[in-house]
Computed example of a mutant assay.
Amino acid sequence: MQTLDFELDRDFVELNQLLKLVGLCDSGGAGKQLVASGAVQVDGAVELRKTAKLRAGQRVRVSDVEIRVLPAR
């Protein structure tokens, strides 16, 4: 499994935007489609809210890629 770290520079990031920012989707719209397909898990549970607010400490999984949302340093 590939692990990507995303350092949060604000209070939260929306799920569809996170997928775009780490390069798993070309756009926020593509991120919304991926979430709607049921292929995205947040903290081990399928997440269908396209703009779910993710905060530091959460983990997102898409197939064999895990994204760790980290606090800003």
Results as ranks from 00 to 15, higher is better:
residue 69 V to G: 05
residue 35 V to I: 15
residue 61 R to D: 07
residue 44 G to E: 06
residue 60 V to W: 05
residue 23 G to S: 07
residue 18 L to W: 06
residue 48 L to R: 15
residue 66 E to L: 13
residue 37 S to M: 09
residue 28 G to V: 00
residue 64 D to M: 01
residue 50 K to T: 14
residue 38 G to Y: 07
residue 50 K to V: 15
residue 56 A to H: 01
residue 31 G to L: 10
residue 41 Q to Y: 03
residue 58 Q to M: 15
residue 40 V to Q: 07
residue 38 G to Q: 04
residue 40 V to C: 05
residue 26 D to P: 02
residue 20 K to E: 08
residue 56 A to G: 12
residue 32 K to E: 12
residue 23 G to P: 03
residue 48 L to G: 12
residue 24 L to K: 02
residue 70 L to E: 08
residue 29 G to I: 08
residue 22 V to W: 09
residue 67 I to Y: 07
residue 29 G to D: 01
residue 58 Q to L: 06
residue 39 A to M: 13
residue 56 A to L: 11
residue 27 S to N: 03
residue 50 K to N: 05
residue 40 V to I: 13
residue 22 V to M: 01
residue 70 L to Y: 04
residue 67 I to R: 09
residue 68 R to V: 14
residue 19 L to E: 05
residue 71 P to T: 04
residue 20 K to H: 11
residue 40 V to Y: 08
residue 47 E to V: 04
residue 60 V to C: 00
residue 55 R to L: 10
residue 20 K to G: 00
residue 32 K to N: 09
residue 27 S to H: 11
residue 51 T to A: 15
residue 37 S to I: 06
residue 68 R to K: 13
residue 33 Q to D: 13
residue 27 S to C: 03
residue 34 L to S: 01
residue 20 K to I: 02
residue 19 L to S: 01
residue 32 K to S: 09
residue 44 G to D: 08
residue 45 A to W: 04
residue 70 L to F: 03
residue 39 A to R: 12
residue 27 S to K: 04
residue 50 K to M: 13
residue 20 K to M: 10
residue 61 R to P: 00
residue 57 G to D: 06
residue 22 V to G: 00
residue 44 G to V: 11
residue 24 L to D: 10
residue 19 L to H: 04
residue 29 G to Y: 12
residue 44 G to M: 10
residue 55 R to A: 07
residue 70 L to A: 11
residue 51 T to C: 02
residue 45 A to C: 12
residue 71 P to G: 10
residue 49 R to Q: 15
residue 41 Q to F: 11
residue 26 D to S: 14
residue 36 A to K: 14
residue 34 L to I: 05
residue 62 V to Y: 13
residue 43 D to K: 03
residue 32 K to T: 08
residue 52 A to M: 13
residue 49 R to I: 12
residue 56 A to K: 05
residue 20 K to S: 07
residue 61 R to Y: 06
residue 29 G to A: 11
residue 18 L to Y: 01
residue 31 G to W: 01
residue 35 V to S: 06
residue 51 T to F: 09
residue 51 T to Y: 07
residue 47 E to N: 07
residue 19 L to M: 04
residue 25 C to W: 00
residue 40 V to K: 00
residue 62 V to G: 09
residue 63 S to A: 15
residue 30 A to T: 08
residue 65 V to Y: 06
residue 33 Q to C: 00
residue 46 V to M: 11
residue 51 T to R: 15
residue 21 L to M: 09
residue 27 S to G: 11
residue 66 E to W: 02
residue 26 D to H: 11
residue 21 L to E: 12
residue 31 G to F: 06
residue 21 L to D: 01
residue 58 Q to E: 14
residue 19 L to A: 08
residue 63 S to Q: 14
residue 63 S to R: 15
